[in-house]
Design a protein around this nucleic acid. Structure first.
Lengths: 134, 134
DNA sequence: CCTTGACCCTGTAGTCGCTACAGGGCCTAT
DNA sequence: ATAGGCCCTGTAGCGACTACAGGGTCAAGG
């Protein structure tokens, strides 16, 4: 029922430094301390950290995680805020996917244009810029 | 034939601070100066900056750009190094695409599970963690 | 001639989300 | 008693910029 910071890290695949960092920026509460000043966590903190990590894995920013935690703290409140943040994030992910897909296509075209030889004739260099030198 | 830093920025859609930053980290050479100590660029610098920006747009890191510039400086050298860097980068892009696609799928599933109501019943919160509170 | 505003300069600090020390204390087992 | 593994605080670093603060310069209009 009582965990060290190392236990928390193992349980959530989080580095100790990261947990301390979450505490510093106020995402995790300041935990109780043992007599030797070690952080002393309980089930609630473990749950909260798991939540944070899962949200991070889904690509939410720490600010978004903070908002999600804030809303989810009010269990009787409305779910709409949560939904809005998640949908906004999904849009952002879709934008990134579109950007990355376009980038990939262009990069592929640049690479395929090269068929070896010396730099002066290299199509990749040519595709990259008008005049590379300094 | 002579450009101010502002001209360079406009020509390549680069912020002035970014150009100075590129100079500071050695990607751009220290340019000549006017009598009033303004940076004084020529065609070669403009070409180099264009190259850098284009490579950045394609997602190359500044370290990769540095390497590309180094290789492309030797016009009679072999094109293979260029090709290798570009292909490595393509692999990285593919990895990112795969990751982002997987993330999107999971995020979508989490969002679709929510059909409104109060936080306590919210499937998004549920999907995110075992116990959210602090 | 003077002022206004747009440009330029240097240098430093902030962003995001960690990560990596440095320099110590504590605790258990041998 | 000593070795090792854990824990503590505090600070600095990463990439790739971005945003000031606090000044200098220059061309055009009044």
């Amino acid at each position: 029922m009582a965990f060290t910071i190392g236990d928390m890290g193992k349980a959530t695949a989080t580095k100790i430094e990261t947990i301390r960092y979450y505490e510093k920026i106020g995402l995790l509460p300041k935990p109780a301390r043992t007599t030797s000043n070690y952080r002393d966590y309980g089930q609630a903190e473990l749950g909260r950290l798991s939540f944070i990590r899962r949200a991070r894995d889904l690509g939410f920013s720490l600010d978004q995680v903070r908002a999600l935690l804030g809303i989810s703290g009010d269990r009787s409140g409305d779910c709409a805020g949560i939904d809005r943040i998640a949908r906004e994030h999904l849009l952002e992910v879709d934008r990134k996917l579109a950007d990355l897909t376009a980038l990939r296509k262009e990069l592929k075209a640049v690479i395929d244009s090269c068929d070896g030889g010396i730099v002066a004739d290299c199509r990749i260099i040519e595709a990259l810029g008008p005049v590379p030198p300094a």
